[in-house]
Write a protein that binds this DNA or RNA. Structure first.
Lengths: 136, 136
DNA sequence: TTGTAAATCGTAATGATTATTAATTAGAAT
DNA sequence: ATTCTAATTAATAATCATTACGATTTACAA
């Protein structure tokens, strides 16, 4: 996976190309897992000991707003994952041991299109948690 | 809604009947919303100014473990809701304005029973977010 | 090359949650 | 009813993720 789509979005929205952003995006492009802000920090600290918390969190939230990253809450922490390369809506099985994910190409909202017309639906979450074949 | 079922569970598991637990359960029995630990604190502080954070959090987590409360993360905070009176599995539409919920009597897992046999499923989450008829 | 808004650094603040220890209390046993 | 004991609570303080802020640096357009 590469980061072209992400840069395309960033450029279009007027964000600058910086080392830190590049590294963060590279980390995401090299994994299929959901990872935490802390994970990013740990990895980046190796090359940039003077890394600022602010830089990580600010960029992660920018990326989420722009649809570059997916965000979810697992065990009390926010977890992120590359999303912008995705070209079709889907959900995830998330392994609680290793963090790996499996895409689930089924969306329950299809079944509920007209089930609650009086309610204004803004978003939804469908996630399955457990252990992947390698972990159990 | 009453709290009998909750006390039944607590007693069976050897937990004692205390004022604080009773008040917490009463608060939940009187609302259908998901509320935060902070909400509970604010309400209880009126009658018990010397209320301890610990008491709230410890009891909430006990209640969740025993299946008395439902827990979910909304806007970065844990939210809780009475669950033990529920006699059938279901999901929720949650109003992001007023916090009220609507039960959704449809579970996507039924469709996925045998979809990913190699994966050990431990739990799942399906929630719909938006605005209820009163709020939009 | 230079000007300027954007981004980052370094650090501190915040806010929710968890931990600690001493005092209190519910419920069982006497 | 009284005593005993383990569970529970109070009153902090600590922790952890996240956010905020002033000072400095940097990307990039003119």
């Amino acid at each position: 996976m590469n980061t072209d789509k992400a840069w395309e979005i960033l450029k279009k929205e007027g964000f600058k190309k910086t080392d830190k952003r590049e590294q963060i995006l590279n980390i995401f492009s090299e994994t299929t897992k959901y990872i935490t802000a802390r994970d990013i920090l740990d990895i980046m600290m190796v090359e940039h000991p003077g890394m600022s918390y602010d830089t990580i969190y600010r960029n992660l939230s920018t990326f989420v707003e722009l649809g570059i990253l997916d965000e979810t809450e697992l065990t009390g922490e926010k977890n992120f994952r590359m999303h912008c390369e995705v070209d079709h809506h889907h959900h995830h099985f998330i392994c609680m041991s290793c963090g790996n994910i499996k895409e689930i190409h089924f969306c329950p909202m299809e079944m509920l299109q007209n089930a609650i017309p009086a309610y204004q639906i803004e978003s939804h979450k469908f996630e399955i948690y457990g252990k992947c074949p390698e972990c159990h």
